[in-house]
Structure formats: C-alpha cells, structure tokens
Design a protein around this nucleic acid. Structure first.
Lengths: 212, 212
DNA sequence: CCAATTAAACTAACCAGTTAGTTGAAGAAT
DNA sequence: ATTCTTCAACTAACTGGTTAGTTTAATTGG
C-alpha cells in the first residue's frame, strides 16, 4: 500500500495554525481564545482549523501534546544522566530554564490546566507531568541519600523549583517593569537563571559543599 | 433631609454573589465563567448579579479588589515591622502562606491576571501588587545590607518567593496526588509551610547564621 | 483526479445583559 | 390601626449579539 499519494501530515498550514493557537490559548485560555482570531493569526481560513484539528478542544489538546512532546526530551535526558545528583539537577534546571525561555507559552498553558483542567486532561498530566515530577524527585532523593543535599522533602523541593522557575515566565510580562528592561531579553534571562540557580543550590546544599 | 428611606448596602445576596463569582472566576477565568452558573451557585437570580455589580467585568473587578483589600493588611504589617529583616521576612512568609491557605482562590485569580490582564487591571496591580513587591524587596535588601542575608538580588528573590509559595496552591489540587492525602489538609499545609521556609531561609542565609 | 485551500455565507447554540413585573416591608397620611 | 405609597430586593422570561462549527462552490497544483 505504498500508494504513492501525497501524505496529509504536517503541511505548513497545520503548523501555522498550531503555533497561532498556542499563543492564543496561552494568552486567553481555551474559553477566551477565538477560533476566528486563531485562523487569522495563522493566515489560514477558519475552515482549515476544522479540517486539520476537528474542533477547538482537539486543537487545544494538540497544542499541549506538542509542547509536552518537546519537554519529553528533557525528562529523558534527566533519567539517563550518569552524573551526580547535584550536577544532574543543576544541568536540568539549566535546560528547563532554557526550554521555558524558548517556549514562553508553555508555563502559561500548564498553569491554566493546573487551575481548571477539565478532567479530560488528567491523561496528559499523568502521561507527561507526573513522570517529570517523579524523576526530579528521584534525583533530589538520591542527593539527600548520598549527602550532597540537605535533608529536604524531595516532592516539596520539586514543587518549589517548578514554581519559582515558571512564575517568572508567567508573570514577567506584567510585573517585569521592576526589572528595568524587557524581562525576556537575553540579558534579563541570564540574570534570572543565575539568581534561580543560586537560591536553589544554596537552599539545597549543606554548608560545607557550597560553591563560592 | 432625613428622608427616612431604606439603606441599600451589603445585603447578603451581594456577598453570596461575590463569593460564588470568586470561585468561578478562579476556576474558569473571566471568559470561562458563566453568569448563570455564578448566580445559581449564589442561590440568586441572574438579574441580581447585574443589579448589584452592573456587568460581568465589574463583578470580576470587585472580586479582585475584595481580595486585594484583605491582602493589604499583610502589606501594612510588613511595612510597619520593627523586627530584623530576617524575622520580618520569616513572619511575612508565615502570614502570606496562611493568607493563601485561607483564600485559595487568590493565587489562581492573580496568576490569571498576570497571564492576560486586560490592561485595565494594570491599575489594580499598580495599586496593590507593586507596593507589595517593593516592600518585600526592601526588606530583603535591608537584610543583605546588614549582613543577615547573602548578597542576593532582592527583586529576583521576591519573584522566587512568590512563585514557590503560590504554585503549591495553584497546582496542588491537580498534582497533589503525590502528597498522599488532600494537599490542602492542615497536616499537608503545615508540611508545605515548613519545607518552604526551610528552603527559602537556607537559600538566603549565609552559613554562619543558619538555624539548626 | 485528488489533496489542499480559499472566501463567504450560514446555523444553531450559547450566553451576557435586559425587561417587565412581583413582593414585602418601612413610612406617611388619614 | 388601617390604608396607601414607595422603593429596594427579587424573579421569570426574553432578546440579541457572539461564536463554534458547517457547508458550498470555486481554485490551484501535483
């Protein structure tokens, strides 16, 4: 069944719609986003949106799955790491920060789902987010066990880590006036990453092993 | 001018509508919340919603202002504190955590505004949220200057603090399965508060002055 | 031919906001 | 004290604009 026919996956139009939908859903939410506006922003006809994605909810789900699929690479790297917990964690925070910086819609979409999550998104969370959390907690636990980290509760540490990292990207645009220039500029991002790792590592490491 | 007419403020119905609106807006957002559902939840007729609050947007704004007014007490206490920066901060985090625990809709509403904030809410943020951030940053700066804290960037520390504190309340319901029982139970909350203060204080304090 | 695409008009549902009218109690008038 | 008046509080049903989703007819290019 080679069927030399043209394939119908991932034409440019579908990608443009997905990208436009991503930013609209991130900014306005599933209920707030307008399908007409998404189509316009994608320079596509509204009918194409239904042609490729069937309906609004499925488009929204496709957006989430697309992002989580990209995040999956980080989780894989995390679970394959052979380095010490401390190095593994530092490297992960670095990667995760860069992921957020290059996918600024992701944290907003995730926060929204965390707040309402129509129940049918439970599946996505179980499939992507929980392994992510558990893997991180495992790394921290390993660090506690081998004495690299202080005796912290790993799950709480993971929550704190994700919370402080995400919040900047969720809120920066609005509260960022305090940081002077654009909070998403390379300069501001570098400063944020440094501050984040500094606070986190000092919070986790026992005195003796502290850097600097 | 006695004009012994009846008074028209704060009838129970308006309060019930405000409370119902708070949880619906927190869970579904301004666009996602349904006025009919809010009215039903408040055991009121939908028209009463318009009678007391004029329209959906104004009801939403009233919800936010009501919460921020309550938060104001914490900011006042923070700015009046005579204690050391370290004690002031620890006491504030404690109070803020309790505020979130007793107003679980607040962080979700704030996150939503941070994500979309129709521009007309800039006013509310400038009036309530910025002073809150600035006051906190001032406390941390004072701690850095008098040597109680490490040399951290105060604004970044504030972002991290708010992010890690809020995130638990925003996400707990959905991701909280990892914490065993109900993440909003007194037991779980006590554990979270402890973990939070522990990580934050170890992150901020120089080695010599660490507790324990 | 066929997949991809466009433009535009259409519909059905939904939902914010309105209206017209009711109730009940506090005053005022007699 | 009884009746009449007024008005805040409340209700049920309605209206009209908006929006998700559809359809149709026509177009392009492999």
């Amino acid at each position: 069944m080679k069927r030399g026919r043209r394939k119908l996956d991932n034409p440019a139009t579908a990608k443009r719609i997905l990208a436009a939908a991503e930013s609209h859903f991130a900014a306005q939410g599933l209920a707030g986003a307008r399908t007409d506006e998404i189509a316009d922003a994608a320079h596509a006809n509204k009918a194409m949106l239904y042609y490729y994605f069937k309906d609004k909810k499925r488009l929204h789900r496709a957006v989430l799955e697309n992002l989580f699929r990209q995040l999956q690479a980080l989780i894989d790297k995390l679970s394959r790491s052979q380095a010490s917990p401390r190095e593994t964690l530092a490297s992960f925070v670095n990667d995760y920060f860069d992921f957020l910086a290059s996918h600024p819609n992701y944290p907003r979409l995730v926060q929204r789902e965390a707040m309402e999550g129509s129940g049918e998104f439970q599946r996505i969370f179980r499939e992507y987010f929980q392994p992510f959390q558990l893997q991180l907690a495992r790394v921290i636990d390993a660090g506690v066990k081998n004495g690299e980290f202080r005796r912290v509760d790993a799950h709480h540490a993971v929550f704190s880590l994700i919370g402080m990292t995400n919040f900047y990207f969720v809120a920066a645009r609005r509260f960022g006036s305090l940081f002077g220039d654009d909070p998403l500029s390379p300069r501001a991002l570098a400063g944020r990453k440094r501050a984040l790792l500094d606070l986190l590592m000092h919070g986790l490491l026992p005195c003796e092993t502290r850097p600097r």
